[in-house]
Amino acid sequence: MRSEKPNHAPLGLKIATAAGLAFMHLPILLIFLYAFTTEEKSYQFPPPGLTAQWFAVAWSRPDVWAALTLSLKVASIATATALVLGTLCAAAVSQTRFFGREAISLLVILPIALPGIITGIALRSAFSIAEIPFSFWTIVLGHATFCIVVVYNNAVARFRRISGSLIEASMDLGADGFQTFRYVILPNIGTALLAGGMLAFALSFDEVIVTTFTAGQQSTLPIWMLEELIRPRQRPVTNVVAMIVVIVTFLPILGAYYLTRDGDKVAGAGK
């Protein structure tokens, strides 16, 4: 096992680590600064002045609200679907032995292992072959597909931690399958499912690549942002929206981390 850790990292390593972490974090912090800039026409740095007026402007924009509402709705339903499917799959894979278990794990991971554009275009062409018109539900279908893996990963990790004898003990004490699920399995995997659900929500809320292929004319918040990125119309509003997106995705991630911090190593390490 690991013996005593050395106390002092070499200076070069410290500098490289600090520089790497700064590179990862500073650009995101910049978003917070730009949300308050008074400059509307360019990305001038440093901002000539600071103001909170753009929050009011963004607040009164119906298109932002429509996109935000759509994104929240899609993320909620996709998360709920992924929770059901991911949990079922995790239960089957971890509680039973059957031929082809490995293949199932691979199948679940495939939608995020392949570049998003492939998932997106495959679904789009399938919709067109099946003559399914684009709708709210086509977006949900795409999102649920790649959210399953997040729930699955969290649930499988937790299932692995429930010792097999707990379930046997429950049955031994007179609980049938449903009672065992309700009184033993669910309480033990509950937080992992909640964490998985939060990460799935964050993933769906932020997704843009698959969505561009399955959304048709509707705009989720990321699609709205993408359009602003390609053809900037009102930069300050985009700045504010970017900041909101950062916050809305950070909260479930912190929550998921908090829920799984002792024990299962990875809440979302496998995005």
Partner: peptide
């Protein structure tokens, strides 16, 4: 974890700035 999970588009947008 936070940069890993934070919004893809926001990250791209930050670099545009």
């Amino acid at each position: 974890m936070l940069p890993l999970w934070s919004s893809y588009l926001v990250k791209v947008y930050a670099w545009k700035l």
